[in-house]
Simulated assay, not measured.
Amino acid sequence: MSSVWRFGCLFCFLGIFSMNLHGQSDSTKVIKEAPESLKLLLNDIIEQATEKVKSDASLEIDGLLIDETKTKSGRDFFDLFYRDWEPPVDARNYSIFIMERPFRANQTLIEVFINETMVYQSFLQPRLDYIEEIVGDSVSITQMYLAQYEELIRELDGEDRKGSGIF
Rank of each mutant, 00 (worst) to 15 (best):
F11H: 03
F11M: 06
C12D: 08
F13D: 00
F13Q: 05
I16P: 01
F17C: 07
F17D: 09
F17N: 09
F17A: 08
F17Q: 10
S18A: 05
S18C: 04
M19R: 15
M19S: 12
N20D: 14
L21Q: 11
L21K: 09
Q24A: 05
S25T: 13
S25C: 12
D26L: 07
S27Q: 05
S27K: 04
I31V: 10
K32T: 08
A34G: 13
A34D: 02
P35S: 01
E36P: 04
E36G: 09
E36S: 11
S37C: 08
S37N: 15
S37D: 05
L38V: 04
L38I: 12
K39G: 10
K39A: 03
L40H: 05
L42C: 13
L42H: 12
N43G: 11
D44V: 13
D44P: 09
D44I: 15
I45C: 07
I46D: 09
Q48M: 15
Q48K: 15
A49R: 15
A49H: 10
A49E: 05
E51S: 07
K52H: 12
K52F: 02
V53R: 04
S55Y: 07
S55C: 10
S55I: 11
D56Q: 03
A57F: 02
S58L: 08
L59P: 01
I61D: 00
D62V: 00
D62R: 00
